[in-house]
Design a binder for these strands. Structure first.
Length: 584
RNA sequence: GGCCCCGUAGUUCAAUGGAUAGAACGGCCCUCUCCUAAAGGGCAGAUAUGGGUUCGAUCCCCGUCGGGGCUGCCA
């Protein structure tokens, strides 16, 4: 059990003793880490919350709490300010906890009591287009959520729902047949396909007669035309090869690659079924789902107010021309995941602009009686210098491969400068670990809902609140262990006394609180902030407390703290898919 | 028009309704005969605006100003 849980239970018990039935039966006293160490390690505002209804002075109530709390092995209590109850954890208790962590593979992180089957839908690039910076967020956040959920004990299924059936294939097919240079295709397939797409796209704008030709190609493909199907399959094949190359550099894998095309056959029956059940109906030639009046108009994803009146904004699941849409595919995909994967939860790591789309999808599921933990894990946009989102349609943005290459190049220069004597092979490995770690950490240390302006300096920074800073703290620990004689053996008990030791222990012990909280809110930045704080505490400790020069119990304790720091940093960064080098 | 998101140091970002709003970068000053200075220690610097709820508001509610997104046949 984590410290705040323990304290909360004791505190709630104490409050019950004092207040009796005046305390609501479901009440649980909140105990949170203090923001400022002057206020102890943890604090509770329970007295202030309860004082009013108990008709007591908050400080008087807090005083009674402290008197009734009894002697605790965990903490000393004090009252402060308007009625805060502050808990200062006893160093001996930190020593006990850290000693226990040394023998715990999970480093104090409990498994969830009820494991769920969670499908995570993320990355989802389009075929025939290279990944660009816009894919960074979904890809990295989604991968991290998968790792976190697995570590917590859930069954996780990651699925790359690639865009392999969109209308863009009309243009690509026409371009493939008319303007594609085969030698270009062999050199760099994805680049060649992108150029074809861009070229046809711009020609369509100049020549109105071209678009119908492209649509014709698309119709032929959808009708099962052998030649077009073959071209389509080639496009998917070369795209996958290119994508795998990026994912392997990022150390990201998927359990499934079920793209849009996988659900083609399910679309028509799905629409029929929705019509039959009365959930969808024809409107202006299209098949649509309208509001069923379940929500208040303000919260209804199928309504919008125009000129003072609520007018319907249906989810269109079949166009007037018979074609299906994004929403149709998403419904079919959701069905598939629920039925074949037995998914309890499906999390979509997709940008915030699609919020309404998902509200509609999830609401249609409600109408159909399908329930589950369906979440749109939204994130903000990556903006250009003009503060507007990168326009992916017009094509010109920064490719993900360029970002990776630049990160590794910059890291290589630093490795060269800092560790000139390192073997060339190791230099290259470290540069890759540091460069890619920097990209991932830059993404994950941010609140996912915030928009941000794409900036090379920021995304690839190697100093400050960055992956290399954390990697360096790990490297410093490892360096110590290379210099001790023999193996490190965990001591049975620690003796934590100096401030720097206490600070470090306090943070180490919090790992078990932070990891579950990070997953609960799907907010990787909570874990990132924690790990940064831990690394910082370690660096301070490292300056203040010599390890190898110390002796006896002091040395044992410090070595143990070093060992735990390394383990927590490695585990924590591992949850982000970031590796830790032994040297740098 | 309506709905959603956002507005915090020079810049980029943090902060389950908590105490004197944290960092990083940039700027200025210190620390390598000492376990990796990719580090440590210090200084200066911010909640768009007007109300409200609350013991307490960057956070919740209402208004104003400013930015972005979405708003029936793309994904």
């Amino acid at each position: 059990m984590t410290i705040p849980t323990l304290l909360s239970e004791q505190l709630t018990g104490t409050l019950r003793t004092i207040l009796g039935e005046a305390l609501p039966s479901e009440f649980k006293a909140a105990v949170t880490p203090s923001q400022d160490l002057r206020f102890g390690d943890y604090q509770s505002n329970a007295a202030m919350m309860l004082a009013k209804q108990a008709k007591m002075n908050p400080r008087a109530l807090a005083t009674q709490v402290i008197e009734n709390f009894g002697d605790s092995e965990i903490a000393t209590l004090e009252i402060a300010g308007p009625g805060f109850i502050n808990f200062r954890i006893k160093p001996a208790y930190f020593a006990e906890r850290t000693a226990r962590m040394l023998t715990d593979d999970r480093l104090g992180v409990s498994l969830v009591k009820e494991p769920k089957t969670i499908v995570i839908d993320f990355s989802a690039p389009n075929v025939a287009k290279p990944m660009h910076v816009g894919h960074i967020r979904s890809t990295i956040i989604g991968d991290t959520l998968g790792r976190l959920a697995r570590f917590m004990g859930h069954k996780v299924i990651t699925d790359n729902h690639i865009g392999d059936w969109g209308t863009q294939f009309g243009m690509i097919l026409w371009g493939w047949k008319n303007i594609l240079d085969q030698s270009e295709l062999e050199k760099d397939p994805i680049e060649a396909l992108l150029n074809v797409y861009k070229e046809v796209n711009s020609r369509c704008k100049e020549d109105e007669s071209l678009l119908p030709l492209c649509k014709e190609e698309l119709v032929k493909l959808q009708g099962g035309d052998a030649e077009n199907l073959e071209i389509w399959q080639k496009c998917i094949a070369v795209t996958k090869i290119g994508l795998e190359k990026i994912y392997s550099q990022l150390d990201i894998t998927f359990d499934y690659w079920l793209g849009e095309s996988a659900y083609n056959d399910a679309l028509a029956p799905l629409v029929d079924d929705l019509v039959e059940k009365g959930i969808a109906r024809e409107s202006d030639g299209a098949i649509c789902v309208f509001s069923d009046g379940f929500h208040k108009p303000q919260n209804d994803p199928f309504l919008v107010q125009k000129d003072g009146e609520w007018v319907p904004v249906p989810a269109i699941i079949r166009k007037a021309d018979g074609g299906f849409l994004y929403a149709t595919t998403d419904l079919a995909t959701l069905d598939y995941r629920t039925e074949n994967f037995n998914a309890d939860a499906i999390w979509y790591v997709v940008g915030a602009p699609q919020e309404k789309h998902f509200k509609q999808i999830f609401d249609i599921e409600r109408m159909r009686g399908v329930s589950g933990d369906f979440r749109h894990v939204a994130f903000g946009s990556i903006l250009g210098k003009d503060r507007r989102p990168f326009k992916t349609r017009s094509g010109d943005t920064v490719s993900l491969q360029d970002v990776i290459d630049e990160a590794v190049t910059r890291a290589t220069a630093v490795v060269e400068a800092k560790s000139p004597d390192m073997p060339a092979e190791e230099k290259a490995a470290v540069a890759k670990t540091v460069g890619i770690g920097a990209i991932k950490f830059a993404e994950l240390s941010q609140n996912r809902m915030s928009d941000y302006i794409f900036d090379w300096e920021k995304m690839l920074a190697l100093t400050g609140d960055t992956a290399p800073y954390l990697q360096n703290s790990y490297v410093r620990v490892r360096s110590i262990f290379r210099k001790i004689d023999g193996e490190f053996t965990a001591p049975k008990s620690l003796n934590i006394s100096e401030n720097a030791e206490i600070n470090l222990a306090r943070l180490l012990v919090r790992f078990g609180e932070v990891v579950p909280a990070t997953l609960d809110d799907c907010r990787p930045n909570l874990l990132a902030a924690y790990l940064y704080e831990l690394a910082k505490a370690f660096h301070s400790f490292y300056e203040a407390c010599p390890v190898l020069k110390s002796e006896g119990a002091v040395r044992e304790t410090r070595l143990a703290l070093c060992e735990l720091t390394a383990r927590v940093l490695k585990k924590g960064m591992g949850l982000f898919g970031i590796n830790m080098p032994e040297r740098m």
